[in-house]
Structures are given as structure tokens and as C-alpha cells.
Design a protein around this nucleic acid. Structure first.
Lengths: 119, 119
DNA sequence: TAGATAATTCGACATGTTTCGAATAATAGA
DNA sequence: TCTATTATTCGAAACATGTCGAATTATCTA
């Protein structure tokens, strides 16, 4: 069974599973958030945090934190890159956009273009 | 820790957990879909299916189907109402809209406009 | 090279999820 | 009222998840 969007069911389910744990959801939201206090905001560059920064508000062991971030990465929600001792994490904008589209109210099929324009 | 949108973390996590199971995701997508084959499309009325219709493509026992639909309902994704022998199900448009907003690319913080409401 | 910091892997354990079949409840129609 | 249909509840079994501590890997700095 195929999807109406550019993302398939197992892939979607995996993303939702990654976001179904409150700790992982907090990690994701921290990366998703724009202009957190004391941070310069850039439109072009995604928000980046290293692993330990992402665990500061979480109250879990480092091994648990690592596990959660790995799950988010395997679900395609995060990208990661080592920077010296640290490993930077940021959201994959394409995945966020795909999920944004998934939940787009699908009521534009009756008329070609309606007044409700998101984008 | 509060959210930047009008939906809190436990509530969000519950919705994502409900959608993390491929069978439940298929159920949700069937309800979300606009203009399925052989069905008249209405903008005002949400797409409705009864429980057994939702299970047709699923290959699970009726008890399992019932359980999944209950989970979707408890997560606030579905609404239900009995119609004779059947029980109709349809998506909660408000919840879909909230999730749509959650994944909205947040790059409007550079502009001074402060339209987003903090709870 | 040695020690410190950051992050991951591994094994273990408690808890949660998915699924089923059997039993039950609610409704429609004869 | 009796039977068929639709859907739910319950208990049980198999499987998956979340968490930790200990050990390990990678990098930086002295």
C-alpha cells in the first residue's frame, strides 16, 4: 500500500516511534526550536547542539542519552557530525518538511486552489 | 518545560506513540485521506469510516483492531460515534492542525513579527 | 605519553506493547 | 424473542523498549 505523499508507511512509523518517547521528543524539540535564549538565529543554518548539551535538561544517564539520539538519527530525524571531542546534532529539515506535509489538512482536493495557503 | 506551541510534551508524545505502530498509522491515514476511490469528497465533513471498514486492509483480529482504534482515540487523534450497529470514526481536525503546526519550519523568528503565542 | 572529557557499546533487568482467542455487550431485523 | 452482526473487554503469551552501570573508543591538552 503506497502513500499519497513522498514518504512511506514504515519510514513514517519509525519517525513517529522516535518521537513517541518524551525524552526523545524533548531532544528533538530543543533542536527544532528557533532562537533559544542567548543564541544567534540563522535562517540558513540549522540549530546545532552537541550530545551532552541535549542531555542537560533530561536527567538520564549518558548511555541512555546516546541511545535516544541514535534512535532519532536512525529514524532520519537528526543528522550528526563530530567536531573534536563533541558530536554536533541538528534536525534534518527535509524530514521535518515531510512530516509537516503529512499533517497538512487535505481539503484542497475538491478545488484546485483554495484561500488557505500555508507554505 | 513548556512548549512553544499550543500543545504540551506528554500530549504530543502520546499522539506520536499512537502513530508509531504501522497498523495504527494505516488506520489514521485512511481517515486522513481525501477523496478515496468511490467516495464523494466533502470539505466541511471529515472522512468517516466504521471500525470494520478500517480493518479491511489490516489483517488483524477484531480485538486487535478495536484496541488500536482505542489507542488512537485516547491519543486525541480520532473521534467516534455509534451509528446503529456500527461505530463511525473520523480524525479530529484540530489535532491534525496542531501536529501540522508542530512540524512547521520555524524560520520566522528573524522577523520582528511576534505572531506565535506562548502558552 | 598520560590524564581528562565526550560519547558509544554492551549486558541486564523491569516495564510496556502487540497480538490473539474466548467471552461479553449492543444493535438490527425476522 | 431469537439470531446474526458489530464491536469491546479480558487474560495470556511473545516480543520490544527504556534505563542503568561498567567497559570501551575517540579526541583534546598538557
Amino acid at each position: 500500500m503506497s502513500n499519497y505523499l513522498n514518504i512511506e508507511i514504515p519510514e513514517l512509523a519509525l519517525a513517529f516511534k522516535a518521537l513517541s518517547n518524551p525524552n526523545r521528543l524533548k531532544i528533538f524539540m530543543q533542536l527544532l526550536a528557533c532562537c533559544p535564549p542567548g543564541t544567534a538565529c540563522s535562517i540558513t543554518e540549522a540549530q546545532k547542539f552537541c550530545v551532552s548539551e541535549l542531555g542537560k535538561d533530561l536527567d538520564v544517564a549518558p548511555s541512555t542519552l546516546s541511545h535516544h539520539i541514535k534512535e532519532l538519527k536512525q529514524a532520519g530525524l537528526l543528522k550528526m557530525q563530530r567536531r573534536g571531542q563533541h558530536i554536533d546534532c541538528w534536525v534534518d529539515p527535509a524530514k521535518v518538511e515531510a512530516l509537516h506535509l503529512f499533517f497538512k489538512p487535505q481539503q484542497d482536493c475538491a478545488t484546485p486552489e483554495l484561500s488557505r495557503s500555508h507554505s
